[in-house]
């Protein structure tokens, strides 16, 4: 079991190419914790924006009548990957982990696998 801080630290330390991570409450759009990022990459702005992404996807699935839940969302930019992983169970409902990867250094499959492991360990 890991708390928010150690989870975010683990994201940056153990996932190759990770440059920023945030734990976000998508009911409010505010980040419970952020790590990494830079002056030009404000993770709180990313948290608010990606909350809209998650909400839009959920609404779309509802309109389509899909029963399943979102496991993760991958956004591919020219030089970055953004991974959104929704947290399930143990009071983590309504939260997602947001991970920014440098696409030159990151291994997408590995990052996704590790993020899943880290998410399973998280206790809020």
């Amino acid at each position: 079991m890991a708390n928010t801080e150690t989870t975010l630290k683990e994201c940056l330390a153990s996932i190759e190419g990770a440059t920023g991570a945030a734990l976000v409450d998508y009911t409010s759009g505010m980040a419970l914790g952020t790590l990494g990022g830079s002056k030009t990459f404000d993770l709180n702005v990313a948290a608010a924006g990606n909350t809209d992404v998650v909400r839009a996807k959920m609404r779309t699935m509802e309109h389509l009548g899909l029963k399943g839940g979102i496991e993760d969302i991958l956004i591919t930019l020219t030089d970055q990957y953004h991974l959104i992983r929704l947290i399930t169970g143990r009071g983590g409902n309504g939260l997602f982990l947001y991970l920014v990867l440098d696409s030159k250094r990151a291994n997408l499959a590995m990052a996704r696998h590790q993020l899943k492991k880290i998410e399973e360990e998280l206790e809020v």
Binding site: V24, S28, G29, M30, A31, V45, A48, T51, D52, R55
Partner: peptide
Amino acid sequence: GVNVGRLHL
């Protein structure tokens, strides 16, 4: 239902 993070920004 507002996104408070965005509301703040």
